[in-house]
Simulated scan of single mutants.
Amino acid sequence: MNDAPGRASTVVALTGATGFIGNALRERLLRGGHAVRALYRPRRGRVMPQAPGLTWVAGDLGDRDALAALVEGAKVVVHCAGNVRGARREDFDLVNEKGVADIAQAARGTAGCERFLLISSLAAREPQLSDYARSKRLGEEALAAHAGHLAWAAIRPPAVYGPGDREMLPLFEGMARGLAPIPGDGRGRFSMIHVADLASAVLAWVDNDGVSGAIHELDDGHARGYDWDTVLATAARVLRDGAPIRRLRIPVACLRVVAGVNLLAARLFGYAPMLTPGKVREITHADWTCDNRTFTEATGWHPAIGFAEGLAQTLGKTPAALNGVPQ
């Protein structure tokens, strides 16, 4: 289905097109009437989904020839690929900083390429917290340094969830069973966004010329974000017919011990950890709230999915579960 049959097709080069967010972006751009050239890592037996207007380009961010092929003929680049797991600073910097610089340079050197959108992270606002957060800020700075004539922008989404998500799904499934692990004192506030709203925001940017050099924060429009009381009350109504959800508070000291052991083991055995001391600092940070004001002013975009509806979608609940639940 084409959401905008009267709009001329733009060729969009997309990285990270096979991940949770990238899948949603790829499908939304295609439905929006654009052609998509998508980067993927080939491996034995892998068969990529096919769709009208979709071209797959084999390679990765470290392959300059693949990047040149990806951006060839593209007017817009949407760079979604990133690394969220690592045992060392260089694990993040290689992808989240150098990868941005390399594809920006490829786009800058391609005739006809005019615009570049980086999917960053709200963590970039607090680069002192972790190697990941630092690398995302460095990625934004790398884009500014290497964009050249390209008009560019960066989007900083907060926690992204929705059908197909693996990171937040265990938390939501725990809530459905009546138990919610809460890191630290549980008094922080945070924003969220449904993956479909993030995808529609990217489409809005692609379809609207804006001021180059802008960095936008996005959320689902819930004023001042959420606290745990609001999240658990909503989850109880949507997932448990009003039955309470018990809080399991996890002291920061315990998280730090587990994260330290996990990081040491990851370095010894060569795997990429998620829970690290830096991640503990991220998840216990007091303020991860944001709003859409600058992005809405630039594009006219507005979020459409509130947390209650998004939570029901994520866990496959029927619309009846939303009766009487405020959005």
Rank of each mutant, 00 (worst) to 15 (best):
A298L: 05
I119M: 15
S130H: 09
A151C: 06
A176N: 09
G278T: 12
G174E: 05
L268S: 13
L315P: 04
A265R: 14
G184H: 05
R85M: 02
G188P: 02
F307L: 08
L248M: 09
F172W: 09
D91T: 11
S200H: 10
L264R: 13
F116W: 06
L179I: 15
H34I: 06
H222S: 10
P5G: 07
G19C: 07
W205Q: 06
G300V: 02
G270S: 06
R108V: 00
L150T: 11
A308T: 06
T234A: 06
G225I: 01
L239Q: 05
W228Q: 11
L255H: 04
S120Y: 00
N96L: 10
P127S: 12
G139P: 09
H302G: 12
Y161C: 02
D165C: 07
R37F: 07
L232Y: 01
W288V: 09
A153Y: 05
T276G: 07
A111T: 15
R256L: 02
I119P: 14
G324R: 00
H146M: 10
R246H: 03
A159F: 13
D219Y: 01
A151D: 02
L239W: 03
D220M: 00
L118I: 07
A35L: 06
L143K: 12
I215M: 11
N2K: 11
G310Q: 09
I182L: 06
D291E: 14
H79S: 15
W228G: 10
G16L: 01
E141I: 12
A153I: 02
L54G: 08
P158Y: 04
D227C: 08
F190W: 03
N208E: 03
T289D: 01
A111S: 15
A124L: 03
A24S: 14
P52M: 04
R108F: 01
R267I: 05
A321G: 10
E90M: 05
L30V: 06
W301D: 00
L248E: 00
I245K: 07
A153R: 13
Y161S: 01
A142Y: 09
W205P: 02
A133P: 04
G139S: 12
G221A: 11
A145V: 13
A51F: 03
A58V: 04
A312L: 07
V71C: 14
L218E: 00
E140M: 08
G45W: 02
T299A: 01
L311F: 04
A321H: 14
L14V: 04
P251N: 11
